[in-house]
Design a protein around this nucleic acid. Structure first.
Lengths: 164, 164
DNA sequence: GAATACCCTACTAAAATAATCGGATATATA
DNA sequence: TATATATCCGATTATTTTAGTAGGGTATTC
């Protein structure tokens, strides 16, 4: 399994969605603000997540994204798969032709490891993560951060208006 | 754990070393020929492996590299660690500061996964791999490939000499 | 009709990986 | 002692992937 920041961003964004989807769709702008991921990059990731039907979109004001299934029915492995196209740790992506047509010396090792990682991540659902205390604690901190930021911004705005 | 071709190349090369070290040191040129890894790239990888004291070198003709310990005493995890510097799947490399000073929403998830992968690879030694049937089969094929290549090359050489 | 927010394509920037080049040093062997 | 082998070392380049940017379009709400 390719384990890059790309997949991690996708899981973080999906978890944010799972955490905040109680009251309707969540906009990418909100996720961007809370999780520090660029909006355009999120758009690219969500295009892939939508193709795999892990999320569905609502357009227009008040719109955003929603999980198509319950959090408990979406595994972390699915999310990583959706954005990473290849989930295989082997050089040949499971085709057994890593070395001019034949399998390389360590093909089986990486193949075994791939399955290992996939198993691990497929047994963890977004729902599981939402219920974790560490996750809830971080989410709470982020909510406070955003609130502060908004207060600061509106204060700045008042300052600007005052100087005009 | 960062799982890239870099670490895979290193493990493949080390396994080649373990397979062929019976009769003295193994040159990087030999490994390069058998495993299709560029010689200079191997030099870079082995500089790191030497720093971690996983291999020792013998200079001059007939020289090459040897494992400093027995194959059974070197885990795959150690090899990957040696070339990959970071073995952590978290964005912050275990520093818990993925999001402006604080941990990100999925920090624990990637941290858990890192340990999972590390455990898996630390339980597999080069000795284990050497004894695997699939590995022995691939090594045998590679030996035959090299033999053929050498025969072809010396035949070509005779052709060239004949035309001169 | 204005604002919101998804949607889409293309481009650019940055980083990591992989490979290349040019040499220096040590050593076995003839 | 000369030569060939092979490690050592640094710098540079190429390629690929990741990440971010830009600029527009479309659907929907109010």
């Amino acid at each position: 399994m390719r384990l890059t920041t790309k997949g991690r961003y996708a899981v973080t964004a999906m978890l944010d969605l799972a955490l905040h989807s109680r009251q309707g769709p969540v906009s990418l702008a909100d996720i961007s603000g809370r999780q520090d991921i660029s909006l355009s990059y999120l758009e690219q990731l969500f295009a892939k997540l939508r193709k795999r039907e892990l999320v569905q979109s609502v357009r227009g004001p008040g719109g955003g994204y929603q999980l198509t299934r319950e959090g408990d029915a979406i595994s972390v492995a699915e999310v990583v798969d959706a954005v990473n196209e290849s989930v295989d740790a082997t050089l040949c992506r499971g085709d057994n032709d890593c070395q001019h047509g034949n399998e390389c010396l360590t093909h089986h090792l990486w193949s075994d490891l791939s399955h290992q990682i996939h198993d691990f991540l497929s047994k963890i659902s977004l729902g599981d993560l939402v219920r974790r205390n560490e996750v809830r604690a971080v989410a709470k901190r982020q909510a406070i951060d955003i609130k502060r930021l908004n207060q600061k911004q509106s204060a700045d705005l008042i300052d600007i208006e005052a100087t005009l």
